[in-house]
Design a protein around this nucleic acid. Structure first.
Lengths: 136, 136
DNA sequence: TGTTACTTTGTAATCATTACATATTAGCGG
DNA sequence: CCGCTAATATGTAATGATTACAAAGTAACA
């Protein structure tokens, strides 16, 4: 039978609520955003639980911790290779699904063993472009 | 005559010391690393001055603030387009000078105006590779 | 159903960074 | 060279995100 390659974690209502919120979520939420969202369904959840759960999911490679936002960590349940575009104004992050050629030849790798790659694009989202335009 | 395209800032001993430390520096120092280094030559400098100066230099596009390290901001005096490789173990960052094709077609840009791009590579530096090996 | 290791919770601590009030000074005009 | 003023430096306090910890609770296995 096909092996289930998703490692088991002890399932709790809190974790279920967090996982449900993250499932298919492409908003790249911060821990706080996750906390606020989950709290609506599960008011007694604590912030620490959100952090603990995110740490656990990260260790199991079930979420990706993004450092792209300079103000806070953001989390992405999509752990397949993809890239991101961040609005420098409002910090909204969207996915870029493109297959860039990102091979680094040994002589440029300086002895590092490279295991991950990620392209960040910086710009202005449609809303913030408009705001800027109207302020001119 | 050729216009000097470097905007003037009021020069102080503190700023001179910070600039001197950053000049040609490829270690991608944190604010704390800059503070520690500059303090050796200029013991009375305050941490706040380092942050203030970095903010000023950032506004003038004379340094690049990197969010690649999840623990702290790192600063890079080289503002020409280049990329980075970070050791997931010790957080050492090295430059990758390569010219990747990173154009995003309009239909993938989701209305964003893209003005910057940056590739992050994750891996293990030579030292940390060895440590890992010896622990096996 | 009992046990136990794993989780949750709340609070306190930590760490990086920013805010602010006060003292100092670079750089300009005279 | 001198004096003025806006910009800067300093120290301390505040902030905000994240982590540590101890005590109480519970999922999941036998």
């Amino acid at each position: 039978m096909p092996e289930d390659n998703v490692k088991k974690i002890k399932m709790t209502p809190q974790r279920a609520a967090i996982l449900k919120y993250l499932e298919g979520n492409t908003s790249h939420p911060s821990a706080e955003a996750i906390f606020d969202a989950v709290r609506k369904q599960y008011p007694m959840i604590s912030f620490t639980t959100v952090y603990n759960t995110l740490q656990t999911l990260k260790d199991l490679d079930r979420v990706w911790e993004l450092n792209i936002d300079d103000e806070r960590k953001r989390y992405d349940p999509n752990v397949m290779l993809h890239h991101h575009l961040i609005c420098m104004e409002c910090k909204k992050i969207v996915d870029i699904h493109m297959d860039f050629q990102l091979d680094v030849p040994d002589e440029k790798a300086q002895g590092y063993m490279i295991s991950g790659r990620h392209v960040e694009f910086y710009g202005l989202c449609p809303k913030c472009r408009n705001k800027k335009k109207n302020n001119d």
